[in-house]
């Protein structure tokens, strides 16, 4: 406790009253949030597909998983996947549903081609998707697989980080991530290389809810 007191006392004796400015309000106005989201995500080397409905999104997802020759797929037990039961619908793949399947989640994620998630929110300005930890929502499921694939309803779009923080409520999850593209580095001669430690591809299927 000694250092705590020492530091706080030092700061307090030299501190002074100061008025913190009020919050900065977003100055962004996008005519089409979805279009901006898609552009920004593409610029960040992510991939965005648009779907007219959840059914359309699922058709595209199925098609995509086949094209990828996805072997192991880990899926978070969260909206929109909860009642879809993808493992019975598409039994050609090897599935692990977070919190429901048996077996070692970590080993499965490490060997998985695809990690499927939903999203808490999505930021149009930066093409970002926000994912959280919680029951049925694994952190490693969106991190260890080769590809992170998120199904995001257009209703979860907000303009930017300012509109997002302004609208936040309630207790924070232990872990929350703002994902803005695939894992990348420029550490070797400033040459961009994709897929260092996180997913090599980040694909979002942005769908309208019917």
């Amino acid at each position: 406790m000694n250092s705590r007191h020492k530091i706080l006392n030092q700061l307090r004796s030299n501190g002074r009253a100061a008025e913190t400015p009020g919050p900065w309000r977003s100055r962004r106005q996008f005519d089409d949030l979805a279009a901006r989201f898609a552009d920004a995500l593409t610029a960040a080397k992510g991939e965005c597909r648009r779907a007219g409905s959840l059914d359309d999104a699922l058709d595209q997802l199925h098609q995509l998983l086949r094209e990828l020759s996805a072997g192991k797929i880990v899926v978070n037990a969260e909206p929109p996947f909860i009642e879809l039961d993808l493992p019975s619908r598409w039994p050609d793949f090897q599935w692990h549903t977070v919190g429901q399947s048996d077996g070692d989640l970590r080993a499965f994620c490490a060997a998985a081609t695809v990690g499927l998630s939903g999203a808490d929110a999505a930021l149009a300005e930066t093409g970002s998707v926000i994912v959280s930890s919680g029951p049925g929502r694994s952190r490693l499921a969106t991190l260890l697989p080769e590809i992170h694939l998120a199904l995001v309803p257009t209703s979860s779009l907000t303009a930017d980080i300012f509109t997002w923080t302004a609208g936040r409520q309630g207790v924070l999850p232990a872990n929350q991530i703002i994902v803005s593209g695939p894992s990348k580095t420029g550490d070797i001669e400033q040459t961009m290389a994709i897929g260092v430690h996180g997913p090599k591809r980040f694909i979002v299927i942005l769908y309208d809810e019917g």
Partner: peptide, 18 residues
């Protein structure tokens, strides 16, 4: 924004998966 912005608020909760 950087590719990943991580927000850590305490250790895993009792019903967290990992």
């Amino acid at each position: 924004l950087s590719v990943y912005t991580s927000v850590v608020t305490g250790p895993a909760k009792s019903d967290d998966i990992d």
